[in-house]
Amino acid sequence: MPPRSAGLVSKALAVYAKDMRLELRSRYALNAILMFAITTLAVVSFSLGQSGLSPKLLSALFWIVIFFSAMSGLAHVFIREEETGTALPLRLMADPDPVYIGKLTFNFSLLTTMTMVVTPLFFIFTDAPAEHIISFLPVLALGVIGLSGATTLVAAIISRASVKGALFAVLSFPILMPLLIALVAATEKVFGGSGLGEALAELQFLFAYAVVMITASLLLFKFVWQD
């Protein structure tokens, strides 16, 4: 073995860089997520347009677009390893923790890219109040972290199943339900002009959800990945 050894951060970065490189060369997950998001957004905007939707409806529509777009691409990070037969050498040579952290970071990047495209379009195509976009950013950030944390573990669980796509949505739904309810409630308050102060309880829940989900995933991933 060469003398200098890589630590957890270097190993996780290697997994992240490898996944990013593969994604940039194939654009499979990014294309799937963006196509789904933009198509859904177009349907919503053409059918409802600037028709004075309530903050409650706008916030629900926004997170529906984000949730289903995430479902269409985030599982790919593990499915690709299983389908191409590269999961075997990865299991053999890499510790589980850096694999999970690398893949979580990759999914977070993917979801962040998607929300950076979708959010401005949502504000343009619907009558979501653009003046509240800054207040909306913390909700969005916590939503993206929570979604990435939960879906990355579920993606690892379903990657060896035969009906991966359906199973991903089915397993993710109950885990993501509390997150989505809190996200919709927080977004509704921000869109309604109440400000972030009013949404403090939801923000605290979103933060706790993200911390618990990522910590639990980190502890459980070893068993999911190796067995």
Binding site: P3, K11, M93
Partner: peptide, 10 residues
Amino acid sequence: FFITVSGGHV
């Protein structure tokens, strides 16, 4: 990639 994730440096 594989050498790095296995803890080595090349």
